[in-house]
Every structure is written in C-alpha cells, then in structure tokens.
Amino acid sequence: MTSQPDPSLYRPNVGLVLFSASGYIFLGRRINGRGAFQWQMPQGGIDEGESPQDAALRELEEEVGVSGKLVDVLEETTDWLHYDFPAEVRRRMPGAFIGQRQKWFALKFKGSDSDIRLDRHTPEFDAWRWARLSEAPAAIVPFKRPVYQAVAERFRHWAGENHSIETQKGRRE
C-alpha cells in the first residue's frame, strides 16, 4: 500500500467529469495550451472554507458557464488524487506547492449544448467538444496523465457503452 503524500505540499483542487446524456465527456481546449496536449476536463482550486463539492459547482460555472442546477452530482472520489508540477511549471507558480491534490466529481449534464458558455467568466477554454472518457488521458499534458487514467477507470461506469465519438457540437475553433 502506498502512503499519501503530505497534503500541505499540494494545492487543494477539484476536477470535473461532465457527462452528456449519451455518456460522453466535456473536454475544453486551454486558451494557452501548447501542442498536442491542450485538451482537459475542468478543474480549479478550492477556496478557503469551501467544500470540494461547492468548489466543483463553482468551477463548473466559471469554466464551462453551466449552473449547478443543470447537473446531478453522480459521484465524488473518496480519496485525493495527486500530481506533481514539473520543474518548469513550478517555477511559474506562486506559493510553495509542489503539485495539486484533487477530489474528482462525476456530473450528469441535464442541459443542452447551448447552455455551455465558455465566455460567462474570464475564459480558460477557447473551444470544447464531447469525447469518450477513454480519450481524456491521451489529450492531457503528460504530468497529469496518471490522474486522468485513474479518473477514467473510476468513472467508466458512468460512460456507458459508447464506442464512437459524438458529433462535436459546440466546437469553436
């Protein structure tokens, strides 16, 4: 059994897997993304005194423009998943954190594609698409890949039996 890293060294964070009615997931393209690994699921920091679920719903609205009223919370990881920042990222980050510790949430989207508004707050994504959950680990920067693989494994039962990519509605490039 592996021991959990010292939580004081990792910024508390949430990650969101937003499932469509047909079992696909939301992937957003980072505005400042580089190269092949610019797609990711929404994520963000937990504010002081905020619960992980409250942070997840806040981040959903800030990054995707979707209100918490348009989702059902399906599942929350029981433990924290960790990743370390590479040295070049750590140099650009404020504070003494060496990485992030994340609670992940599976959310069922009850809205329509037109409810997704990347411009409701300061945009972090410039495009989005529906994708298979199994595609997410290959789309993310390599240092986050083990967490995405763990999330894909833990939440695969919410993805259903879909084997092909849904039409990429809402994609703006």
Score class of each variant (00 low, 15 high):
96 A>V: 07
163 H>P: 01
136 A>K: 00
45 G>F: 00
74 L>H: 08
167 T>N: 08
167 T>W: 04
139 A>S: 12
27 L>R: 09
163 H>V: 12
163 H>A: 11
19 F>Y: 14
98 I>M: 05
100 Q>C: 09
145 R>E: 13
43 Q>K: 11
138 A>W: 00
98 I>R: 13
90 R>Q: 15
122 T>F: 05
172 R>L: 15
153 E>V: 06
36 A>Q: 08
69 K>L: 08
91 R>G: 11
6 D>C: 04
46 I>H: 08
51 S>R: 05
37 F>M: 04
144 K>T: 10
75 E>Y: 03
64 V>E: 10
83 Y>N: 04
93 M>D: 01
63 E>N: 03
106 A>Q: 05
55 A>P: 03
36 A>P: 00
57 L>E: 04
60 L>Q: 07
120 R>M: 06
27 L>N: 01
47 D>I: 00
133 L>H: 09
80 W>N: 13
36 A>F: 09
150 A>K: 15
62 E>D: 12
57 L>C: 06
112 S>F: 02
95 G>F: 03
35 G>Y: 06
131 A>Q: 07
127 A>Q: 14
172 R>D: 12
121 H>E: 11
138 A>G: 12
144 K>H: 12
136 A>W: 11
63 E>Y: 00
46 I>P: 00
17 V>Y: 07
7 P>G: 00
59 E>D: 05
116 I>R: 04
77 T>W: 10
129 R>A: 13
66 V>W: 07
49 G>T: 01
30 R>N: 05
33 G>R: 08
99 G>W: 10
39 W>K: 15
135 E>V: 07
72 D>F: 01
25 I>C: 14
69 K>P: 00
9 L>E: 07
68 G>H: 09
68 G>Y: 07
166 E>M: 11
108 K>S: 15
144 K>L: 14
11 R>W: 00
58 R>Y: 08
25 I>G: 02
71 V>T: 06
140 I>N: 12
110 K>T: 02
163 H>Q: 13
51 S>W: 03
49 G>N: 10
114 S>T: 13
53 Q>S: 11
100 Q>T: 08
44 G>P: 12
70 L>D: 00
164 S>P: 01
109 F>N: 02
53 Q>E: 14
26 F>E: 11
